[in-house]
Deep mutational scan, measured.
Amino acid sequence: CHSECLGNCSQPDDPTKCVACRNFYLDGRCVETCPPPYYHFQDWRCVNFSFCQDLHHKCKNSRRQGCHQYVIHNNKCIPECPSGYTMNSSNLLCTPCLGPCPKVCHLLEGEKTIDSVTSAQELRGCTVINGSLIINIRGGNNLAAELEANLGLIEEISGYLKIRRSYALVSLSFFRKLRLIRGETLEIGNYSFYALDNQNLRQLWDWSKHNLTITQGKLFFHYNPKLCLSEIHKMEEVSGTKGRQERNDIALKTNGDQASCENELLKFSYIRTSFDKILLRWEPYWPPDFRDLLGFMLFYKEAPYQNVTEFDGQDACGSNSWTVVDIDPPLRSNDPKSQNHPGWLMRGLKPWTQYAIFVKTLVTFSDERRTYGAKSDIIYVQTDATNPSVPLDPISVSNSSSQIILKWKPPSDPNGNITHYLVFWERQAEDSELFELDYCLKGLKLPSRTWSPPFESEDSQKHNQSEYEDSAGECCSCPKTDSQILKELEESSFRKTFEDYLHNVVFVPRKT
């Protein structure tokens, strides 16, 4: 048989008469490798580009789960590009990614509803959504962080984005990388972005840091009482949809009607710091009717980097990364020049730590249904340095008659930039024990000054392991946590139920 035959053949030295091919099969003959313009397919066939392209389009058009959109890589027609490569849609070739590779997620039936953290986790790592997304989240724990972890990498949506009755959302900033909504599939009414009845939605994105392009379709905003109209108009300008909307697409009466839409800028007039305090004062603000001013709200939190936005980490279910302080308005003076500047002394802060701070007014709604208010920009203030805590785990070892090696770990709280350490030492008198000992005694162990690591005695271990207080009263049991108490109650309830079950099964009433 021919060298490319495997198993047997019907005619000697003829690659077209093989029972099976050793390498690849091409047009009725066995070959060692697939010549151009053919590609290896499933490690035994040679196919042309049209064959591989037909497989790709067949799966793409069917949208069946589990099928493969075949691509070409290293002269092979394979189910998908290997790690580190992405497909070129024009020629199906796998090309190296520039940075992290995109991950295209194809949605069944063309859309997916995100109504819980669990459903959001199914899209973790996706960068391109081939379909439409509907966000409908009523509640949950730590929602802002969970949504950002699972949806934060999405850069492109081919269909539309719909935010509907998501009472738990305060902001859409968890879509931190969303840059493009194509609108290839539109919501009824030709809408590519749809926001309806979101009672706590206050911000779409921080438009000073976020760009969003909507290729096709219109915007729809109705019944978002805490979303200011200025935020919607800003989205029109940034996304390129200005002029597409009709009169009733953006409701003037049901958007922002319960919001404090600040239209003035508060400026800080005085800032002073110490290692654990920050004193702030800002310019006074009074609405047209000074009785509408209820006070100020001061927001602050630790910020290692200057990239904080107002609604980071917030949701309507209680999660809030900001510390909020309510401040009463100052006494009002008739003389504008003698107006008191409101302020606040922030206490209990960490030394040498940068804080993000902003302040906003708290006002009631005027009778004319106009909203007044003022808010400052987010500023960054760093507390002063102070003395560091003591170095940890000092170790001293003498390696000769004239040297001592000293080692330690950095302090747990540096409280500033540590530039150097101060080492103090003092000579001590020799131990009298060394002169009084009889060095001729056998088995004498000389006193040693070398360091030995501390260890816990058996008594201390027994005390720590004991669940009861000892007789001397030195140790006591740790208080039980809520989960331990709940577990004990469940076990007790189970024992009672099981005992009742045994009584009912074992003891049967005697027939009379």
Rank of each mutant, 00 (worst) to 15 (best):
T273I: 08
I157L: 05
L108Q: 06
W322C: 01
Y167N: 14
I404Y: 01
E156W: 07
S173A: 10
T118A: 02
R247D: 05
R291C: 13
H106C: 04
D384H: 14
S402P: 03
T353N: 02
K177M: 04
P304V: 06
N320A: 09
E264H: 06
G189A: 11
S158L: 15
T273M: 11
H233Q: 11
G313H: 14
L331R: 11
T127A: 03
I278A: 03
Y372D: 08
S260T: 11
D257C: 11
Y300F: 04
G295T: 04
L153I: 13
L161C: 05
R369M: 08
E237C: 15
I278T: 02
V104L: 08
A251W: 15
T386G: 02
R244F: 05
R165E: 09
L133C: 01
L219N: 04
I114S: 01
F268N: 00
G159A: 03
Y372A: 01
D312Q: 03
Q258I: 02
D115A: 04
K350C: 14
T361E: 08
N320P: 04
Q403P: 00
D257T: 00
I188K: 08
S173G: 05
G189I: 01
K253G: 11
K301L: 08
P287V: 10
G140I: 11
F358R: 13
N387S: 04
E236V: 14
G131F: 01
A303D: 12
T215P: 02
L180F: 12
L201H: 00
I379L: 09
W282Y: 00
P342M: 11
L133K: 01
I163T: 03
Q314Y: 02
F311P: 11
V324P: 03
T361R: 04
K301E: 02
S116R: 01
D326F: 03
D115G: 01
F174Y: 14
G256Y: 06
Q199E: 15
R291M: 12
L186G: 14
S208L: 14
D115Q: 06
Y223T: 14
D249A: 08
N334A: 07
K350S: 11
L266E: 00
T215N: 14
E236L: 06
V363D: 05
P351Y: 09
T127R: 07
